[in-house]
Design a protein around this nucleic acid. Sequence first.
DNA 1: TCAAAAGTGTTGTGTGTACACCCATGT
DNA 2: ACATGGGTGTACACACAACACTTTTGA
Lengths: 215, 215
Amino acid sequence: MVVIDIIIFTFEDDVLKVLLVKRKAPPFIGKWAIPGGFVRKQESLMRAAERELREETGVRAGYLEQLYTFGDPKRDPRGRVVTAAYFALIPRGKMKVRGASDAADARFFPVRKLPSLAFDHKKIFLYARTRLQNKIQYTNIAWSLLPRAFTLGEIQDLYETIWGRRLDKRNFRKKLFSLGLLKALPKMRRGLRQRPARLYAFKKKTYVELKRFFS
Amino acid sequence: MVVIDIIIFTFEDDVLKVLLVKRKAPPFIGKWAIPGGFVRKQESLMRAAERELREETGVRAGYLEQLYTFGDPKRDPRGRVVTAAYFALIPRGKMKVRGASDAADARFFPVRKLPSLAFDHKKIFLYARTRLQNKIQYTNIAWSLLPRAFTLGEIQDLYETIWGRRLDKRNFRKKLFSLGLLKALPKMRRGLRQRPARLYAFKKKTYVELKRFFS
DNA sequence: TCAAAAGTGTTGTGTGTACACCCATGT
DNA sequence: ACATGGGTGTACACACAACACTTTTGA
């Protein structure tokens, strides 16, 4: 039997979060799990992942890619269930999380404060987090985690959070501008008790692969 | 239904080659295809790939990783067959290719001279080739394609073949030595009508991930 | 003696990295 | 006034890229 699971990341309150659903059907009833479901006949794996993402969050895309396929014969107590895991990136605020049919509840958890997970979902989550950490080094996918307009401080926070280390502000901005993918907006973020920050947006929301992004 | 397919690469006669089997069962009888087979009960996907690799080539490992899972509902005329594709790298000369149970014949084809392939195997092959091209940029997996002892000319030929462009001999060697992974052997490759070349081997056959390997 | 690949250093350029101070706002 | 992040430029180190000639062998 083939199912899909989606690890859905978002970036909110300066932390990386992942969507979990509480299982209301056996096995692992009451445990938190990565959202997923069956693949319908006449539906490709990617379509199934897109559908599941829409059902769970109400959003269309952001970024979605196949992560890895887990097929250990003992990963599901009911018998062999092969899962094609996908991972998705969603900008904050866009989605309206709702529990899907087989979930009593659904919410985002900071990746540093995850509850214990059903099945081998801990392993799947760790695989996804590693992929995200690696991939932001040579692509711009992390930008799918940002809202339309953002400050340079926000994007730097995002990178620092995912990498888990501090970056030099001047070097970060220099590199960012040198890529030529940002446009400055004629607006500032005001209302905080500090100097207003310039807002930026992406020229196009295209996926770019780079030799080396930030190291 | 879940099956696995393995794209097995080797490097021989200065070209990159891939193993294909001729189908002797329907569908696509008589057509060349990427070797693969069913996953047994109580066998993980990776174990199934290892078994299949052994059955097809007689060798144990070299390098083996999961590539991508293809699940288009129309990819197999018999109905939905999801295939977890793996890709493997094998040093030349080690393997004794033999046709497996569902293949009338099996042999290596240069990647530039492939016949037409069954199913969506062309797409799978292209995906594998791209992965190989990308991955040799930041890992040392290509070294699984080389025999125990090799000359610097051979390893450079390998990189030039996979990338499809020429590299500067001095810069290539400088970078290679700077990694500190090679040891010079007290032997030379003789018998060719040219100056003998020093033979080298890897200090250990470990997988190394680098920030940037060759650009 | 000739063809063929082996072997070997230096220099310029670009990119990454380290580093410190003033600015504009809200409270 | 002060706390908070916003915003800005220079100097050094290092890695990559370009480049040409001599050596050793087999035929």
